[in-house]
Simulated scan of single mutants.
Amino acid sequence: MSRILMFLPPVLFLGLAALFVVGMNRDDPDNLPSAFTGKIAPAVTVASLADHPLFTDEDLRAPGVKLVNFWASWCAPCRAEHPMLEKLSDEGIAIYGVNYKDRAEAAEGFLAEMGNPYRAIGTDERTMSIDWGITGVPETFVINGEGRIILRFAGPITAAELARSIRPAIVEASK
């Protein structure tokens, strides 16, 4: 029995090391799959933010490709991705914003400083982010004309990510 116990620590170590190696060699370690991909997006349940047009469920279900972007003024990655959102908006992509865990004054200041790429905005009253499975901000969803989620992208949209995942999802959503 003591002989078996002598080999137990090295065997456990090797097993744990193998798990780490497998985990570190996944294709995309930052990919957080969404249970909603391919399904109809959950309802839009937001309150208005100042004088901005209100993001509604009708906007989400309207024909055409659209992005739903969860953001906050206190979020540094949201600032980093903002030029990419403005670029997409300038190209005619409909982007709807959901302000997340933020003060209205701070959100207004962010938009005044950075620009407003959103067709309509709402502020989350703690239910929409839960319903959509948000883990943090920024998170962006590409939605097709049927209101179906094509892609969930967690993190800031960079130029590389725009080319690698967002644009292909927009193309798929437009089919």
Rank of each mutant, 00 (worst) to 15 (best):
E139I: 10
G122V: 10
R3L: 08
I150K: 01
L8I: 14
S2F: 05
I134F: 04
A43K: 12
W71H: 02
G155T: 09
A112V: 04
S73G: 15
A35E: 14
P53Q: 08
A112S: 10
E91L: 10
P77E: 02
P83T: 11
D27C: 02
V65E: 02
Y118R: 05
E146W: 02
E125A: 14
F20H: 11
I149W: 00
V171L: 11
P77W: 04
A104P: 08
L111M: 07
E108A: 07
V21L: 11
A173H: 02
G115Y: 09
S2C: 00
P53M: 08
S2M: 04
G38N: 12
F13G: 14
L5S: 03
L151H: 10
R79T: 07
W132N: 14
S73N: 15
A120G: 07
V171Y: 00
I134W: 06
T45W: 00
N116V: 07
F70E: 00
D28G: 01
A160Y: 12
L54I: 11
L8Y: 01
M1Q: 06
E146K: 06
P42C: 01
E91D: 11
G115N: 05
D51N: 13
E58P: 03
M128H: 05
G136M: 09
K101E: 08
V98Y: 06
S129R: 10
A62K: 06
L162W: 05
V44W: 00
E125M: 10
P63L: 02
M84S: 12
G97F: 07
E86F: 03
A47Q: 10
C78S: 10
R167Q: 05
F20E: 09
D90P: 07
L32Y: 03
D90M: 10
T37P: 09
V98D: 10
T140W: 03
A76V: 15
L8V: 14
T135S: 15
E172F: 11
F55L: 02
E86N: 14
H82F: 02
M84I: 12
E91M: 08
L60K: 01
I170V: 11
L14S: 12
R148D: 09
S89N: 13
I143S: 06
L8N: 04
E113K: 12
I166R: 00
M128F: 03
Y118G: 05
R148I: 08
L54C: 05
I149A: 04
M128Q: 08
I149Q: 00
K39Y: 14
D131Q: 10
P33F: 06
V11T: 05
L151M: 09
P9L: 00
R148A: 06
R103S: 14
V46R: 04
T37F: 07
M1A: 12
E113P: 06
R126G: 03
N25M: 01
F36Q: 15
A72N: 07
T127A: 11
D57I: 03
F141H: 04
K87L: 13
A160N: 12
I143F: 03
I166D: 04
W71C: 01
T123L: 09
L111D: 09
D102S: 13
D59C: 05
